[in-house]
Simulated assay, not measured.
Amino acid sequence: MGHSPATAAHGVTVGHCPGGYGPAAIGLAGRSAAMAALCNYLPKVARSRATVLITGETGTGKERVAQAIHALSPRAAGPFVVVNCGALPDTLVESELFGHARGAFTGAVSAVRGRLAEADGGTLFLDEIGEMNIYAQAKLLRVIETRRVQPLGGGRAFDIDIRVVAATNRELELEVAAQRFRSDLFYRLNVARLVIPPLRDRPEDVAVLADEIIAEFNARDRSTVEAPAPELLQALAAHDWPGNVRELRNLIEAVFIDPPAGRLEFEHLPPAFQSLFARYRCSVPAERSRLIEALERTNWNKAEAAKALNWSRMTLYRKLAKYEVADGGM
Rank of each mutant, 00 (worst) to 15 (best):
N218L: 09
G22V: 04
L233R: 15
F80Q: 11
G2R: 12
P18R: 12
E216I: 02
W311C: 05
W300C: 05
L320G: 08
A29D: 03
S4C: 02
T91K: 12
K62C: 08
I292E: 05
R156A: 15
V191A: 14
L116Y: 02
R290I: 03
L189A: 14
D161C: 01
R115H: 12
F256A: 02
L72G: 03
A111R: 13
E267R: 14
A9E: 11
L316N: 06
G56Q: 04
L116Q: 01
T60W: 03
P270D: 01
N133G: 15
G99D: 09
G56W: 04
T91N: 13
M314P: 00
L141S: 07
P271K: 03
G243K: 04
L185C: 12
A229H: 15
L232W: 09
C39W: 03
E131G: 03
A215H: 09
N84E: 13
P228V: 08
T168E: 13
M1F: 09
A227P: 03
I26K: 03
A76D: 02
P151N: 08
R288L: 09
I162K: 00
A326H: 11
Q179I: 00
Y135R: 15
E293D: 14
L38T: 15
R180K: 15
G99P: 09
K307V: 02
L174P: 00
A34L: 06
G328L: 06
K319N: 10
L320M: 14
L124Q: 01
W300G: 04
H70Y: 14
C17I: 06
F186P: 14
P89R: 07
L174S: 14
L194C: 11
A37S: 15
V143M: 06
G61C: 04
T168V: 13
A66R: 11
A9G: 10
F273G: 00
L316W: 06
L42F: 11
F273T: 05
A136K: 12
